[in-house]
Amino acid sequence: MKKRKLLIIAVPILLVFLYGFTYFPQKLISIDPSEVSKITVFDGNTGEKVEITDEADINHVILNLNEVTFRKGKPSFMYSGYSFDTTILNHEGKSLMELTINTSDTIRYKGFFYTAVENSIDYDYMESLVRK
């Protein structure tokens, strides 16, 4: 009986504690650029869709994203509007990652906003690729 009471109390506390770890700053993106065949970007400002296939551009974008450390923020449900809805695809055409780049320091990923706390997204470079 005591063990059951302990479990009833300990499990929710443990789950809350573990969930809290998701709010520590972390690198969300760790993709080897050689695994990427293309990056598709839908520009929420213009309605245009662009495929980035140039190896140098892919390397720049992926290496930049790999360097950024993010902190999880508030849920992004019920928010609309964005700059770059981005999908990173491998050589088989499968999605390696989907994220939305809002600014040089904010993305949406898996239902939450994330803010850059170390380094930043090269937003100007991304914008130059999308708006060529």
Rank of each mutant, 00 (worst) to 15 (best):
K3T: 12
R4F: 11
L6C: 04
L7Y: 12
L14Y: 02
F17T: 15
F17A: 13
G20Y: 03
T22I: 04
Y23H: 11
F24A: 13
P25Y: 06
K27G: 09
L28K: 10
S30F: 02
D32N: 15
D32I: 07
P33I: 04
V36K: 01
K38V: 08
T40Q: 09
V41P: 02
F42T: 14
N45Q: 14
T46Y: 06
G47H: 07
E48C: 09
K49Y: 02
V50M: 11
V50H: 09
E51F: 13
T53G: 00
D54P: 01
A56Q: 15
D57E: 15
H60Q: 10
I62W: 01
N66T: 07
N66E: 00
E67T: 15
T69C: 07
R71W: 01
G73S: 10
G73Q: 11
K74A: 12
M78F: 15
S80F: 14
G81E: 03
G81C: 07
Y82L: 04
T86W: 02
L89M: 11
L89H: 09
L96G: 08
N102R: 03
N102K: 05
D105L: 05
R108T: 10
Y109M: 13
K110G: 05
K110P: 03
K110I: 11
G111N: 09
F113G: 03
Y114D: 07
A116E: 01
E118A: 09
S120V: 13
I121T: 04
Y123Q: 01
M126D: 01
M126G: 03
L129I: 05
R131S: 10
